[in-house]
């Protein structure tokens, strides 16, 4: 369980990213922080592994204040996936995945063996092991990024717009893969995105943020959709333009779901 308690961050140049943010992230579930750019979601995410140090409040992981932990050791115990994967371009795929294990003192052979297992879990076979990141497609690189974060079997996974830089088809594929993985692995995931569709697709708990890290609404996707807290949320999740007000229409014997403007959104089975 991760607890944010009245967390605040002001950067050295005086800009305030977040103030008085509180949230509980239950264990073994996915919490998605979603908001437009500048809402402080990435700052919040990065404060969990102390890539950002807070100026106010504290974060507890399983009741321990992370401020007391050595940042480097803390980071080695938490998986981190970022946009553009952030792989080390000078290391082969297998060694990229083995990185954190090696940093934790696992012998090379054992680390590679484990890395190969994790790569298989994320759907990459042995043919990629010896390649360098630049030789992979964007989607493959992102899978390697996820594998690297999982290699050490951390309890917590932080994901910073991990699928933001891949094309929509690959993104949908990766999201589906994520759901499958999470069913098996049951990690505590904090996921940051600006895409509300992605938030609803992946989150058990969705946190909609306004500017300055202020919480607009917290809840399960269905709750938020059913009862948006205010106009901001309603607009953010797309209720306003009728995109989500769906109706069923009969089209040559099949039941087609259409939005307010009659644009097709799907098929009802």
């Amino acid at each position: 369980m991760i607890e944010f308690r009245s967390v605040g961050k002001r950067f050295a140049d005086g800009t305030r990213a977040v103030s008085d943010f509180s949230l509980t992230v239950p264990s073994h579930t996915t919490t998605v922080l979603v908001g437009s750019s500048g809402c402080g979601k990435t700052t919040l995410l990065r404060s969990v592994n102390r890539m950002v140090d807070l100026t106010e409040g504290k974060i507890l992981i399983d009741d321990d204040d992370i401020a007391a932990r050595d940042p480097v050791q803390l980071r080695r115990s938490i998986g981190y996936v970022m946009q553009h994967a952030g792989l080390l371009p000078h290391r082969r795929v297998i060694d990229n995945v083995a990185t954190v294990l090696r940093l934790n003192g696992v012998p090379k052979a054992a680390a590679r063996q484990r890395a190969a297992q994790v790569l298989e879990t994320v759907g990459l076979d042995a043919s990629v092991h010896r390649k360098y990141p630049s030789q992979l497609s964007g989607g493959q690189q992102q899978r390697v990024g996820v594998a690297r974060a999982l290699a050490n079997d951390p309890n917590i996974l932080l994901m910073d717009e991990p699928f933001g830089a891949v094309d929509p088809i690959v993104r949908a594929e990766l999201q589906q893969e994520m759901r499958r993985l999470q069913q098996d692995l049951k990690k505590t995931i904090v996921f940051v995105t600006h895409d509300i569709e992605e938030a609803f697709a992946l989150g058990d708990q969705v946190v909609i943020l306004r500017e300055g890290g202020k919480v607009a609404q917290v809840g399960a996707p269905a709750e938020i959709l059913a009862r948006p807290a205010d106009e901001f949320v309603a607009r953010f999740i797309g209720l306003e333009h009728g995109r989500r007000q769906l109706r069923v229409r009969d089209e040559n014997g099949r039941r087609i779901v259409v939005d307010e403007h009659g644009r097709p959104a799907g098929v009802l089975e």
């Binding site: 803390l74 980071r75 080695r76 994967a85 952030g86 080390l88 371009p89 954190v100 940093l103």
Partner: peptide, 15 residues
């Protein structure tokens, strides 16, 4: 050296 790679290395726990 791309800052994003340095950032990701720090996040992995490189001292």
């Amino acid at each position: 050296v791309p800052p994003s790679v340095l950032d990701s290395a720090a996040a992995c726990g490189f001292s």
